[in-house]
């Protein structure tokens, strides 16, 4: 039951975040790169005031899977390591907290590029 509720929250919150993104695409014709950066920075700024944390606690993957969760993780990691090691920590914590995601993307990207060939879109 607890799992079902967690899944429902993740579905609704994650879906709603994507709907905001779709509205941006439809009404502003922004390209992929810009949309990704806007959401990432939004997540980072919300976490600067400690707000995104609440969303993560409430919705779990619904808040951590969207790219805004990546911004949250960067800021959270950077702020935490400032607490541990002083100002220099600002340059350490962000990438450390997100290292798994970035490294996975790079390594899998490399492997996939070696295995697969580009194909034409069918439609």
């Amino acid at each position: 039951m607890e799992l079902a509720l967690a899944l429902l929250k993740a579905f609704v919150v994650g879906g709603l975040i994507c709907v905001i993104g779709q509205l941006l695409i439809d009404y502003t014709h922004l390209t992929n790169g810009k949309i990704l950066v806007i959401f990432l920075v939004a997540g980072a700024i919300l976490q600067a005031f400690g707000l995104y944390e609440y969303l993560i606690k409430f919705a779990g993957a619904g808040a951590s899977v969207p790219i805004s969760g990546f911004g949250y993780a960067l800021v959270k990691g950077a702020v935490e390591s400032v607490k541990e090691m002083g100002p220099i920590g600002a340059f350490v914590g962000g990438l450390k907290a997100t290292a798994i995601g970035i490294s996975t993307a790079i390594v899998f990207g490399y492997a996939v590029a070696l295995i697969f060939k580009p194909r034409t879109k069918e439609m």
Binding site: I25, P118, T120, K121
Partner: peptide, 20 residues
């Protein structure tokens, strides 16, 4: 050519983009 023009002018083919 679709595939050569697409990556020069727009995006890589495998990128999931929403076409206007």
């Amino acid at each position: 050519h679709f595939s050569t023009a697409e990556r020069q002018y727009r995006f890589p083919l495998e990128l999931g983009v929403f076409r206007s």
